[in-house]
Each structure stands twice: as structure tokens, then as C-alpha cells.
């Protein structure tokens, strides 16, 4: 993986985006710009719309109303975007074969596969486990393999949905170290979490969602030091937002 120049995928702009399904409004009138830079972290309680927002930005879901553009264009296929879902599905193959599959899907020439697989396994610290069945890896190892598989696409933007939920501190640190390394290579990271500690450790800027709307957004230090809204203050104070 090389350092990449700012990409035409960015900025991703949401303009009045609403998602409704079955009479329930999941996201309501979201206007938001995701630009090149340090990781953007989406925080908010469960059901606030974080995952839906990631799926929209990835292009897996179309808005009910409103418009999303990637670098100013509509309907850009997700060739330079990648996502790690909250529960990544591992193909029933070895760890290396999972990576080769992603490389093939991304149209990377076969001659480069062996080298890229080695690089990716090394990046996520799974060199020794390349031949292990992916579904037999531990939770933390699976999460790291899912990160490597997403990076196989050589993305300009990487979406992460609760990448460390249900991991222990050691596995969480391993995943967060990879996220930092990825961000330092100029890959834009957009990440959802409900772990405030993680948000503090990784975020460049914060978008706080509640009940399908953005309640507050801004640079991470300002958000954590001087939250402007009562919801943000309550959330930061550890109160249960319902």
C-alpha cells in the first residue's frame, strides 16, 4: 500500500438525505460533508442511524429523499471505497484466500496477488495465520482480517462500523493501531462507534447522531471539551440517551 494523493471520491456530500422504511424514519434530513483528513467518528446510541449513514456513504443504500455525491458526482461505483461491517462475514476459505478473493474482485492483476497478500497480512499482523480457515480465527483476528480485506481494494475511503465492539482491550488496541496506520497513509477513515474512549483516541472530528438526526458536530477536542448541546453533554456524561 502506498501513500495516496487526495482522491476524487472525496468530499462525500450529503444534501438533505432522508431514509425511511416501513413508515419509520431512520435518518432525517442529513446534510454533511466528509472531507479528506483525520478520521471522522460517528457517535450516538444504538439505533441513532450510524450504520445507515455508513451504508449510504458507501453507496450500498439509496436515500429515500435528498442527494449524495462523491467528489461532486452522483452514483459513483464503490471502486475506491471499502467497508468493514460490524459483523464481517468471512468466506469459507483460508485467511489468504479471503484476501485473494478481494484482490480479484477489485480487479488487481493476478501477478500482484502473492505480494499484496503478504503485505496485507503483515500490516494486520496475521503473517503466521495465512493458511488458517478464516472462520476459525478468533474475534480479534477476524476483525483484523476484515480490515486487510477491505484494504485489498486499495480504497481512498474506508468505512468502519463498530470495528472493536465485543473485542477485549488487547485486540482493540491492535485494531486501533491499524486504523491509525491506515489514516496516516491518507486513507480517509469514517467510523461508527458507541465507545467514547475510542472516539477520543481516534477522531479528528466527531459527528453525533441521535434519533436519525445530527445533534452536534465539530473538531474532536472542541466537542469533548465544550459540547454545545444538552444531548452531547448528557452522552459525554455517560447518561443513557433514549
Amino acid at each position: 500500500m502506498t501513500m495516496r494523493a487526495p482522491s476524487s471520491e472525496l468530499p462525500i456530500e450529503f444534501d438533505g438525505v432522508t431514509v425511511a422504511a416501513g413508515g419509520v424514519t431512520i435518518l432525517d434530513q442529513i446534510t454533511l460533508t466528509l472531507a479528506q483528513g483525520r478520521p471522522t467518528v460517528l457517535i450516538g446510541p444504538n439505533g441513532s442511524g450510524k450504520s445507515t449513514l455508513l451504508r449510504l456513504a458507501m453507496g450500498l443504500l439509496a436515500p429515500s429523499r435528498g442527494r449524495i455525491t462523491w467528489g461532486g458526482l452522483d452514483n459513483v461505483p464503490p471502486l475506491k471505497r471499502a467497508i468493514v461491517f460490524q459483523h464481517p462475514a468471512m468466506l469459507r476459505r483460508s485467511a489468504s484466500a479471503n484476501l485473494r478473493f478481494a484482490l480479484r474482485a477489485a480487479g488487481i492483476p493476478r501477478a500482484e496477488h502473492a505480494r499484496r497478500v503478504d503485505e496485507l497480512l503483515e500490516l494486520v499482523g496475521l503473517q503466521a495465520l495465512g493458511n488458517r480457515a478464516a472462520r476459525r480465527l478468533s474475534g480479534g483476528e477476524r476483525q483484523r482480517l476484515a480490515l486487510a480485506r477491505a484494504l485489498a481494494r486499495d480504497p481512498a475511503v474506508l468505512f468502519l462500523d463498530e470495528p472493536t465492539a465485543s473485542l477485549d482491550p488487547i485486540a482493540t488496541k491492535a485494531v486501533e493501531d491499524i486504523i491509525r496506520a491506515v489514516s496516516e497513509r491518507n486513507i480517509k477513515v469514517v467510523m461508527a462507534t458507541h465507545d467514547l474512549g475510542e472516539a477520543r483516541r481516534l477522531a479528528g472530528d466527531i459527528v453525533m447522531l441521535h434519533r436519525g438526526g445530527i445533534v452536534e458536530r465539530g473538531a474532536a477536542p472542541a466537542f469533548f471539551d465544550t459540547p454545545q448541546t444538552s444531548e452531547a453533554r448528557a452522552f459525554l456524561a455517560g447518561e443513557l440517551l433514549i
Binding site: L79, I83, A106
Partner: peptide
């Protein structure tokens, strides 16, 4: 989800 995200 995975196969769709890989644009397969």
C-alpha cells in the same frame, strides 16, 4: 453485504 460491497 460483503459481496455487494466488493462490487461483484
Amino acid at each position: 453485504d460483503e459481496l455487494t460491497a466488493m462490487n461483484l
